[in-house]
């Protein structure tokens, strides 16, 4: 069974260990601004919500790419960007309705969560288990994905 990220925002303390681990894994530096997972802060409530690509079935990013630079990693099911093919046109960044594929001025390409090839470093780094990588067929993250997807009319219009 394929695993997926399970995010429980209620457990997040906003420590940003996930962002540090992600940026280190993908860029070799501890630079949260270059992390592919992002912890959003809700100041009024004093709460936090980590969020990243849900590897959604619709794969709007992949469908929008003009040069076939996004594909599916067969082992994890992650939608991954092939850096050698990406021209940096950014059309995927406006196509993904969740805002989770983003242009990197540092590389001139887009970046998104690739599940670290099956060993997501955000989950490994999270001290409170707010992010876990589990084989469950109905994770909290799936629920997030479903609730986000059902709000979009185009989600139904698929082959």
């Amino acid at each position: 069974m394929q695993k997926s990220l399970n995010i429980d925002p209620g457990k997040c303390t906003g420590c940003l260990q996930c962002e540090m681990a992600c940026s280190y894994e993908h860029t070799g530096t501890f630079n949260p601004s270059r992390s592919y997972i992002k912890v959003f802060t809700f100041h009024h409530e004093g709460r936090f919500a980590p969020y990243t690509c849900t590897q959604c079935d619709e794969a709007w990013c992949m469908r929008a790419c003009p040069v076939d630079a996004i594909g599916i990693d067969a082992s994890t099911g992650a939608k991954v960007v092939y850096e050698d093919k990406c021209v940096g046109c950014k059309v995927c960044t406006i196509a993904c309705p969740f805002g989770t594929i983003n242009y990197s001025q540092a590389t001139g390409k887009v970046v998104k969560c690739d599940l670290c090839g099956g060993d997501p470093q955000c989950a490994a780094a999270c001290p409170t288990d707010a992010i876990t990588y589990v084989d469950a067929d109905w994770t909290g993250y799936d629920r997030m994905m479903a609730s986000a997807a059902k709000s979009l009319p185009s989600a139904e219009a698929n082959a």
Binding site: K38, C96, P97, F98, G99, I101, L152, P153, S154
Partner: peptide, 16 residues
């Protein structure tokens, strides 16, 4: 703005 611009599409198309 380069980060999370796609969510503007999400907010508009979902008519939330």
């Amino acid at each position: 703005k380069t980060q999370h611009v796609g969510v503007l599409r999400g907010l508009i198309e979902s008519k939330i």
